[in-house]
Amino acid sequence: MSKTKIHRNLPQLLLRARDVLLSHFRGILTHYGLTEQQWRIVRTLREQGPLEPNQLCDACQILSPSMVGVLSRMQTQALIVRERAAHDQRRIIISLTPQGQAIYERVAPLVEAQYRLIEDTIGHDLIDQTYAQIDRLLSAPLDQVPAVELPPVED
């Protein structure tokens, strides 16, 4: 009798790795009153410039329903501003305010210092290999993988 290989739960392992790594950054973000989602938005807007909400959702890996609430809180905190696009009044553009820029300037060096501490502890090679393997996985044709055929639903 042949044994079927049972794969490890890759999505669960990736989530665990994410949580372990993020635990090293949460203290910095909390110190400045930011959530992880808010920091992703601040960092993305600082690095990519003003974006439409759907672009921001894609870049930050935040679902649209969640993004609405996060952006509202960030606007209340004066970290971002929403403006109508000059070329198309139906479109909204999100950008950092001067206060949002300032928070980036305070937090980014601490985040980079924490990355260096992680690299110094676990090794630059492991970090470089991890980036390379994740890039390789993300560039694989995962969108072309067929779905397993499902059996009929039993009543």
Score class of each variant (00 low, 15 high):
residue 69 G to C: 06
residue 62 I to G: 00
residue 68 V to W: 07
residue 95 S to E: 09
residue 78 A to M: 11
residue 98 P to K: 04
residue 51 L to S: 02
residue 22 L to I: 08
residue 63 L to V: 12
residue 7 H to L: 14
residue 14 L to D: 07
residue 33 G to C: 04
residue 60 C to R: 00
residue 35 T to D: 07
residue 63 L to D: 15
residue 135 D to P: 00
residue 27 G to R: 05
residue 134 I to M: 08
residue 10 L to I: 13
residue 47 E to G: 05
residue 17 A to F: 10
residue 110 L to F: 03
residue 118 I to D: 01
residue 155 D to Q: 14
residue 72 S to E: 13
residue 116 R to C: 04
residue 18 R to K: 14
residue 9 N to Y: 05
residue 42 V to L: 10
residue 44 T to M: 01
residue 134 I to A: 08
residue 135 D to H: 10
residue 54 N to V: 04
residue 128 D to T: 15
residue 125 D to N: 09
residue 86 A to K: 12
residue 42 V to Q: 00
residue 39 W to K: 00
residue 153 V to K: 10
residue 54 N to H: 13
residue 70 V to H: 06
residue 70 V to W: 04
residue 155 D to H: 12
residue 63 L to K: 13
residue 96 L to P: 01
residue 84 R to N: 08
residue 155 D to P: 07
residue 11 P to M: 01
residue 5 K to S: 11
residue 16 R to L: 14
residue 19 D to Q: 08
residue 40 R to Q: 08
residue 140 A to T: 06
residue 128 D to E: 15
residue 104 Y to L: 05
residue 38 Q to A: 08
residue 42 V to F: 01
residue 99 Q to R: 14
residue 133 Q to R: 09
residue 61 Q to K: 09
residue 102 A to W: 03
residue 15 L to E: 15
residue 137 L to T: 04
residue 140 A to I: 02
residue 71 L to E: 02
residue 25 F to E: 05
residue 77 Q to H: 11
residue 9 N to E: 10
residue 76 T to H: 12
residue 116 R to A: 13
residue 118 I to S: 01
